[in-house]
Simulated assay, not measured.
Amino acid sequence: MSRTPQEIFQSYVYAGPFTRNADALAENFTEDGVIELPLLPAGAAFPRRLVGREEIRAVMAAHYERQAEGSRTPNAEKSAYVLHTTSDPDVFIAEIDTVFDGDGDGETVSLVQIFRVRDGRIARLRDYFAPDLMS
């Protein structure tokens, strides 16, 4: 299954932040896929590293359930991203500005994600964002 970086990224974002569907999110990853959140402090409530599709599914399902009440919603029309390909065809970088609906103009959160893919799925995702977003 060969997908472009654009297709992989859009599928990941739709399954994750926009629909909070842990099953669909997990299916974007290889069986041994890894999510790393290097900026989270040690001992944070959310793990800094998730290994394997099933751990990703379970941890994200619990996280989305906790987020359900009173959480901010990303605004797809106001949010923006740029994908950067690299000399390695299995690596791309997403530069993201997510706008959350709220009072006034909403809040913008900027982050960078580095994707390493294998066979059209995410093998490793490094997510660099403000750690307070996970509280």
Rank of each mutant, 00 (worst) to 15 (best):
F100V: 00
Y128A: 07
T98V: 13
T85L: 15
L25F: 07
V59H: 03
A22P: 03
L133Y: 01
G52N: 05
F92N: 05
F9C: 10
L39A: 12
Y14K: 15
V82A: 12
F115D: 03
V109R: 06
L40T: 02
V34A: 00
R48A: 15
V99A: 12
Y64R: 03
A58M: 03
F18M: 09
S11C: 12
D127M: 00
Y14I: 15
M60N: 14
F29S: 05
Y81V: 03
V117R: 07
R121T: 13
A68D: 03
G43A: 06
I114T: 09
R116M: 12
R20Q: 03
V117A: 11
V59S: 08
S135R: 13
I56N: 00
S135I: 13
L50R: 00
S71V: 01
E77M: 09
I93G: 04
E95V: 10
T73N: 00
E36H: 10
V112A: 12
D32H: 01
E95G: 09
G70P: 02
D97P: 07
D101C: 00
L40A: 06
A61E: 11
R126A: 15
Y14L: 15
A22S: 15
P74M: 06
T108F: 03
T19A: 06
T108P: 01
D90I: 11
P5W: 05
S2V: 13
P131L: 06
E55H: 08
P17V: 05
F9N: 08
R118C: 00
R20M: 08
D105L: 13
L133Q: 05
S135F: 07
S71Q: 05
D88H: 11
A62L: 12
D23M: 04
R53S: 08
H84T: 13
R116S: 11
F18P: 02
G102A: 04
A44D: 13
F100N: 03
A61W: 05
D103C: 11
V91Q: 07
T98C: 06
E27W: 09
A44S: 15
Q113P: 02
D105Q: 13
I96D: 08
Y64K: 01
P131G: 05
V34S: 06
Y64H: 12
T30V: 06
R66I: 02
V91W: 08
Q67T: 02
D101L: 04
K78P: 02
Q10P: 07
N75G: 13
L83E: 04
A94F: 04
G33F: 00
A61M: 04
V51I: 09
R126P: 02
N21Y: 05
L50N: 08
R66V: 04
A45E: 10
G120P: 09
F9W: 14
D103I: 15
E54K: 10
I56R: 04
R72G: 01
Y14W: 14
T108A: 01
E54D: 13
I93P: 04
R48W: 07
L50F: 13
D32Q: 10
F46A: 05
A94L: 13
H63Q: 11
E107D: 12
R72W: 07
R124V: 12
D105E: 14
A68E: 09
F29K: 06
D103R: 15
A24L: 12
F46T: 00
A94T: 09
I35V: 15
I8P: 10
V34N: 08
I96V: 14
G16S: 12
